[in-house]
Design a protein around this nucleic acid. Structure first.
Lengths: 208, 208, 208, 208
DNA sequence: CATGAATGAGAATTCATTCAT
DNA sequence: CATGAATGAATTCTCATTCAT
């Protein structure tokens, strides 16, 4: 009656496939990745792969969701550090735990962009993309709003709009970096510049 | 046996195909457009199409180039309006002839992003993309540098970096707008906000 | 190490699977039914299913056999009602216990037709189909022959041929009904008409 | 401007493919025939085949339609032979030009049955099947009705019902013959018997 | 030059069946 | 016996590109 292979094992297998697939997506991009690539990278048979994911889209979305929940964990953590100023929070949100602009980018980002951009005419994908966009906006919006309420930030600009501009910046950077080599885009410097933009818009003192 | 069809005619035919193809690319996106779509839209036979463009990539690049030269014309025009302040020029560069943020976007932009992003692992396409990026940076760079030299702009920030941040913003906006409906992205407001960022960074007085 | 599960239990399980499978076959047809459908309907694991039936064909044949033996029981019963005229018997054979044309059809009939017709090039299936056909012919043949011998029926036509024409009619009706809605085929009326044909051919007085 | 290959050639190619496909369908049946079989039999490449027929269903329907129009031609011919009694017409309709029961059957008939029976849950196919059934009924109905009006036939039974019984018989015979060898079904004799049924039902004198 | 039929590589997906646990 | 993960053969369909006419 009990399953031959433990639930753990199943989860593990699934996770393994996703891990291998992630690598493939990073290397080949979303469109150019075929299920065969994944099969080979994950060392699964065709049928085996389809047992876990019913198609490429499904597989990719699973990877996206995973990324999301990981982020959420990280973020959740951050938000608990209650006392810290909203500005610190904002920086952590944008640049990860150390809150400093750096040279790292999510290596899957280009494929994500691909996924959403090539699927922009697909109802399902579009909706999904919008949901994600909204979530992204909301996270930043809340932090900014909080800062504006406590007076830490100027409320000269609408928090939602500022939040959107952050997303725009992040997406634009991901896009450019997907195509240009790092040194052309100047990832870190641009990030620093954008932080300056934000400081000015929020009246955050430079010393922060 | 002189050519049956004049060079003019050929040029015209080519232009017609490009025009029709542009529409198709706008509607279907780059990846999802097939040569058949183009054939039908342009009313050319398969062979005919391949006579003018040896493949889809070639066709799309021709359209890109055309767009570039048109822009260049526009820009060239602007640059001749010598006396105007660089700020005005900058705005015209970003938002077109009237120099004001608006709701319009290049309708082909999403497909362009697609083209470069799905082709990021292709040597040829990548190089081409880099060239375009560089050109974009240069145009903005020059205007900003000019403004900084005349003292119209503060030189607190590196002109190349500022130029890049404009590109990042424009690309990010195009990307988000490709996926989200206009009202979610708030195209115009974001543009206005970004202009504020720039004003602050360049010390341009708000009255401009 | 006595068997953990009683023979009874096994039989029951088998019967349950067959019952569930029958439903599936009725709803989906033979070809379109997959073992997965059956698994789910019967609440058996894949392996479990294959323990009882080594493949889809096997499973379907089991169902067919069951149907046959049930019919045989019914028929056997009928035959024991010795005194009744052969005509009554014939009608019971064709239309069930009440011996009257009606609107009911074996809901599995379409799938049976499918089974035999798609498998007509398969040696095994073909042989099986022939056996069944022969059995069907024989049953009717015997009754008609009996009637002819007692003088109840005219012997103008060969009993085997008449028997075959009954099968042809029944099969034809099943086939048409499988595809057409009842009202198009006029199941009951056609049956009544066919009974008239038979009466005429057998010289059975209309009052019967 | 003018097509390289004449329209004739095209039509010919299409006809050739259909002819080859018909053979394959006859030999393998509808379900078991794959596009690859057809490709090989017709000596077309995959793409070539799909240029003419967008899938197996489409191909088969084309063959069906062709058969229909051929029949219609034949029938049209028959109907013009005005003076002949309706009975003769009826026999020609059932058994072809010579109007006599024989041993021939449409070799594609089994596949047709397959097509409709396996597709009985498909909206499109079902509708198509119903249309064909109706057409078949109508043809017989009209002839019978005509005969009844001129008094050539008894009008004891409803012409529509008689027409249906003919279809039922024809379908039943096709079905049984698809599975049984000819000698088991006794094609010719059954046909003769059915003609007797009809004669009795229509009061057609035996000498006809 | 133009035409469009033909090609065929490749991608996705489905399912019956096996087999280690 | 039971389980269900794994397998892989088979099939459908798409499309960029070529090439004979």
């Amino acid at each position: 009656m009990s399953p031959r292979v433990s639930k753990e094992h199943l989860k593990q297998r699934r996770a393994d496939i996703m891990k291998a697939a992630t690598q493939v997506f990073i290397e080949q991009g979303y469109e150019h990745t075929t299920m065969k690539h994944v099969m080979e990278a994950a060392n699964v048979s065709r049928g085996g792969l389809y047992q876990y994911f019913s198609n490429k889209e499904d597989l990719f979305e699973a990877i996206l969701e995973e990324g999301l929940s990981e982020e959420a964990e990280d973020t959740g953590f951050s938000l608990e550090e209650a006392a810290s100023p909203q500005w610190t929070l904002l920086m952590k949100l944008m640049f990860g735990e150390d809150g400093r602009p750096d040279t790292n980018m999510d290596p899957l980002a280009p494929s994500k962009l691909e996924f959403f951009i090539t699927g922009r005419h697909d109802e399902r994908r579009r909706t999904y993309g919008e949901k994600r966009y909204e979530m992204g906006v909301n996270i930043y919006d809340e932090v900014i709003k909080a800062g504006q309420e406590t007076g830490e930030f100027s409320d000269r600009y609408d928090s939602g709009l500022l939040a959107r501009s952050i997303i725009t910046f992040v997406d634009g950077l991901a896009l450019d970096h997907a195509i240009q080599p790092e040194e052309k885009v100047r990832l870190k410097e641009q990030s620093e510049l954008f932080v300056e933009y934000l400081k000015m818009a929020l009246d955050v003192s430079s010393s922060s």
